[in-house]
Structures are given as C-alpha cells and as structure tokens.
C-alpha cells in the first residue's frame, strides 16, 4: 500500500514534448509508472517515444487524453505562464489528482486554480514541488528513484533535495518508504502536511512518518497540533532554516520569515510541544525513526 499513487495510477503528462517533460517522462516510464498519455496543444496525433520501444500517444487536450486512455492522474511540466491554466484544464478533465512540478507560477493565478480544483473535488499536489514516489510501484514527478526502497516509512516534505537527503539516510539504514511526497515550496499549495498525515495514518503499511518543514508560514505548527490529536503512528520532524535571517526569501517563494512569524525555532517548539521527535541534523532523522520502529 501507499498513498495517492500506486500501481493503479494511469498518468498523463502535460507538457510531454518540452525539455523537462520529455526527460522526466522517460525517467518515470523506466521506473515503471504507467504513462498512458501526453498533452501538448498543437501536437495531438504525434507519439512520444519512451524507453524500450514503448510509445505514448499525444493529445491536444486533457479532455481527449482522459476519454481515450482512462488516465486518472496528471503531472504538469508546463512553463509558468500557462501552468495555472493547465492545472484547471486537468481538474476539469476527470482525473482525481494533479501534480504540478512547475516553479514560478504567479500566486494570483494559483489562487484561482486552487479554488477551481477544490470545486471539482480534485487533489492538487504543489506547485513548485518534486512530486512523489511510491517505491516499487509508481513515480510521478522528478524524485530520483535510485535512493528509495519499499518499506514502512511515510515521508512528507516542503523541500526537494533535503527530502532526498532524509530518504537516502533512511534507505541506508534499511528503512524503506511507503510513499515520499514533496508538497512544494510555494506560498499557496494544494496538498498540505495535514492531508498527507491523514493519508499516512489511514495507510496500513505506513508505520512511522517523517515530516520535513522549513521557515515561513504556519503549516508545520498546525500539522503538529493535528499529529497530537489524530495521528497514532510515531512522527519524526525536521525544520530547515534555523540560521535564516528574517524578511529574506530563502530560495523557495514561501520560505520567508515575516515579522516574528514562521521561524524555525517556533516550528521546532510546536513539534516538541505536540510529541513529535525533532531531529537536530538531517542524518538524525533516520536514527530517530529506527528507534521508534524497534
């Protein structure tokens, strides 16, 4: 078992003919993800040549792609100017899940796109996220497959490479993962920590959860309170940005301490107050999980 994606995931890639879209489509197919369709307006009727002679039909619209192939999930590698439109098109097409990788989508566009997707009852992951991977069955996004392994740990994170660091440390200790989810570094994201915690709690194969946050906003604080109330499985947390100065954006659009709100200290304290073990260093995450699964 896993959360959000598994062997039943049938994926359509929006922006499949672009540089990033084509590269990652091949990577996802190599991992075993069922990529059933691609969408690039104006290129309908062509095919995408994947690894080992596999080919994927390309459609002009999401509507056609879903009608023809029965896709249930979409991943978006569309440039920022068109990405919010692509998310809304996906949400309107009948898929249940839209994973938006694109970084730099205007926030006002995303406010509309999130509202639209909510109305359609469609889950959005991201934007500005690495996607997710359920080891052994499916990968949707850009996470490096070689560092994951099947196992009992659920991982949810706002960061990309920092997640890899934590997952790598877990795998090195022989602790595999059910699903690793990167929720994204933007100010407005579709799927948040609490959504993932709820899913991991409900997933019978997940035995422990890693939650990796960073400065900015209050999502981690709210997630910590949620853990105390609703999560029976052990949770280990890490927060990046203890040395970040206030008022400066640290790479991710959402990683900014506003006034005194959103500091690493505040978030780590919230974790501790609600019974979440806090790792001091990324490498300690795996050790803390191991203790809790022993």
């Amino acid at each position: 078992m896993a959360i959000f994606i598994d062997s039943d995931t049938k994926l359509v890639v929006q922006g499949i003919t672009g540089r990033d879209g084509s590269f990652h489509t091949t990577e996802m197919m190599e991992y075993g993800t069922q990529v059933v369709a691609g969408v690039t307006p104006g290129k309908g009727g062509q095919t995408f040549e994947g690894p080992d002679g596999a080919s994927v039909p390309i459609f002009n619209t999401m509507d056609e792609a879903v009608a023809e192939t029965g896709a249930n999930t979409s991943v978006i590698y569309v440039p920022p100017a068109f990405a919010a439109g692509a998310i809304m098109e996906a949400a309107d097409s009948g898929v249940d899940l839209v994973v938006a990788i694109t970084e730099g989508i205007p926030v006002l566009d995303m406010a509309r796109a999130h509202a639209f997707a909510r109305d359609q009852g469609v889950r959005v992951l991201g934007p500005n996220c690495p996607g997710m991977i359920s080891p052994g069955t499916s990968k949707v996004g850009i996470l490096p497959a070689q560092i994951v392994e099947e196992g009992p740990v659920g991982v949810v994170s706002r960061s990309g490479t920092l997640t890899y660091e934590a997952v790598f440390a877990l795998t090195n200790l022989g602790l595999g993962q059910t699903t690793c989810v990167g929720i994204g570094g933007d100010p407005l994201i579709g799927t948040n920590f609490i959504d993932c915690l709820e899913a991991f709690e409900a997933d019978p194969d997940t035995e422990a959860i890693v939650m990796i946050g960073e400065i900015g906003g209050t999502d981690e604080q709210e997630a910590a309170a949620y853990v105390e109330e609703h999560v029976s499985k052990p949770v280990v947390g890490f927060i990046a940005g203890q040395t970040a100065p206030p008022g400066r954006q640290m790479g991710h659009a959402g990683a900014i301490i506003s006034g005194s709100a959103g500091t690493a200290e505040e978030k780590m304290k919230a974790f501790e107050d609600h019974g979440i073990a806090v790792a001091k260093r990324p490498v300690d995450i795996a050790g803390l999980i191991q203790e809790r699964l022993a």
Partner: peptide
C-alpha cells in the same frame, strides 16, 4: 554552494551546529 533551497538552509544550519 548547494543545490536546492531546503538543503541549502539545512547546510547553513549544520555549519552552525
């Protein structure tokens, strides 16, 4: 010099550690 914002912040924190 790091790749990724989260890892870059975690690296700074580790320098301090």
């Amino acid at each position: 010099c790091v790749n990724g914002a989260g890892l870059a912040m975690a690296t700074m924190d580790l320098v301090k550690y």
